[in-house]
Amino acid sequence: MTSLPSPSAKKLGLVIDLDTCVGCQACATSCKEWNTQGYSAPLNDVNAYGSNPSGTWLNRIHGYEVEEAGQAQRRIVNFPRSCLHCEEPACVTVCPTGASYKRAEDGIVLVNPETCIGCKLCSWACPYGAREYDQNDGVMKKCTLCVDRIYNDNLEPDDRLPACVKACPTGARHFGDLGDPDSAVSQLVAERGGYDLLPEMGYKPVNKYLPPRPRRDGATSRPEALPKPDGSAFDRLFAWADRLLSTGKTPARAADIDNSGKLEG
């Protein structure tokens, strides 16, 4: 089991747009909510109403400050982090029991809660912190890519998406087959320069991240300003307003207006 299957043609995964994520936690709580009653349920909480509450979550949202060339201040980037369903998942190969496995069909990495002994070694092998040990259940939990949603015949076809993707209010999360170069997610990755996390580790993550776009502010935009004609701004405005009436059209350019602002009455 922990031997990896031959690489699947279908590589289901997520594409996460860091330019659009506002860090609202919708993906995190929707994930927790679905998965606490779905595959490998529940996702337990410890000290739920006391000090230091903690629990098992399959998706967590970080906030980073990032320095930018030409910008005086660092920007904040919200960063959701969950299992990347790697093509070379060491978390699977280190598993002594075969509870961790990568599906031959679509590449989803799962833990079988019936056979996991809770040795935690897989979480040590994962560089991405994707696996969380559930101390109440004594087994390891991780993102299932909502395997019990995406193929679920009891759901409407439009709902057959991972809970996080369906929830995401800004549309920053995309789900699809990254093994198919023509899929919408693959196209998105190609267009936006989607990238791997820690590529040098060789785990070959399937999930991709789309980088934040450059800002469009004073540091990056061309400086521009409205024309500042000489003379009395009021008089020019008056002339402009006067002309409005005669042409019935707006807006007119200031430069070619004769300044003849005389008050009547």
Binding site: H62, G63, E65, L198, P212
Partner: peptide, 15 residues
């Protein structure tokens, strides 16, 4: 490299 945000610049944790 972990966040991939090095393509923009130096990264530090905020929250």
């Amino acid at each position: 490299a972990a966040t991939g945000l090095g393509r923009i610049g130096r990264v530090s944790q905020w929250e």
